[in-house]
Computed example of a mutant assay.
Amino acid sequence: MRFRRSLPTHSASAPAGTVRRAGWAAAPAALLALALALTGCTRVHTTSPSTVRQEAGTTGKGAFGSVDCRKAKCIALTFDAGPSKNTAKLLDVLKDKQVHATFFLLGKKHVERYPDMVKRMAAEGHEVASHTWSHKILPEIDPKEIREELRRPDDAIERITGRRPTLVRPPQGRTNDTVQEIAREMGLSEVLWSVTAKDYETSDSALITKRVLDQADRDGIILLHDVVPGPTSKGYRGTLKAVPDIIDALKKRGFTFVTVPQLLAPGTPQPGAVYRP
């Protein structure tokens, strides 16, 4: 039997990106059900990388790359919302550090504007995935729009790289049963995270680095961003500067950087599943 963690996700009436954890597991079942009904929450079941590996046993077909995360202390570095004019410098850093990452790309104004960066990501061994077409909050739109948000970036990425993405990160990590069912139909797995630097809030590279290092653990999935900020945005300016320090510090702690599919190997991402350490 597959072990899954239950993660509450919220409707449009709840604050964006809010996740409640503490205290819920201990609540009586009836009280918990009432609370979920009143807040508009549904239970989203997530599966950890270690569970995927354990279930795959020795017969799984996932690609290890250069490391077996059943034995090594692995962590996945992921970037949302690119590509952008910042991407070339970021790819230079990753190449210099010999680290492969997973890029969750936006279609509108990003993939369509920087196809050469998408092609370079794939050519240099990074996992190219989707962050939807225009960053709409998926549980807040109708099923037809959800399908378009998932289909259009995948079509564009496949045209550029020759490979259709199998992973998607829902904006703000917001998902529900409808999103999962549509993702399953479209052959997509959802990927959340365990480490966030909130680099959309600060340009302080030292703070971004500290936040990542404070949260990093084995099988972790680190969320950072690739987008150059607008004139009024606080975030992303310090991310590029922080990445080399994050990589160096975590390597000193014995971590090996892998893509999300490598983190699951010898298991493979399953359509409709939601992965989170």
Rank of each mutant, 00 (worst) to 15 (best):
G65D: 02
V67S: 00
C69P: 01
R70F: 00
R70S: 00
A72C: 03
A76F: 02
A76P: 00
T78L: 03
F79Y: 09
D80S: 12
D80H: 11
D80F: 14
A81D: 15
G82Y: 14
P83S: 13
K85N: 14
N86L: 13
T87D: 12
T87S: 15
T87K: 09
T87M: 13
A88I: 07
A88H: 07
L90Y: 06
L90A: 03
L90V: 09
D92V: 03
L94N: 02
K95Q: 12
K95L: 07
D96C: 08
K97W: 11
K97R: 15
Q98Y: 05
Q98D: 14
H100N: 13
H100C: 11
A101Q: 02
T102A: 04
F103R: 01
F104E: 04
L105R: 00
L105Y: 02
G107S: 05
K108W: 03
H110R: 07
V111R: 01
R113K: 14
R113V: 14
Y114S: 11
Y114N: 09
Y114K: 00
P115D: 06
P115C: 03
M117E: 15
V118Y: 13
K119W: 12
M121F: 13
M121I: 09
A122G: 11
G125E: 06
V128K: 03
A129Q: 07
A129W: 11
S130P: 12
S130I: 09
H131V: 15
H131F: 14
T132I: 14
S134H: 10
H135S: 00
H135T: 00
K136E: 12
P139W: 03
E140S: 08
E140T: 14
I141D: 09
D142Y: 12
E145V: 14
R147N: 07
E149F: 12
L150N: 04
L150P: 04
R151V: 11
R151N: 09
R151D: 08
R152C: 06
D155K: 08
A156Y: 06
R159C: 07
I160T: 06
G162A: 07
R163G: 09
R164P: 04
P165H: 04
L167Y: 12
V168A: 11
P170L: 10
P170M: 12
P171Q: 02
G173P: 10
G173E: 08
G173R: 03
G173C: 13
T175G: 10
T175F: 12
D177C: 04
D177Y: 08
D177M: 08
D177T: 10
T178D: 06
V179A: 04
R184T: 12
E185V: 13
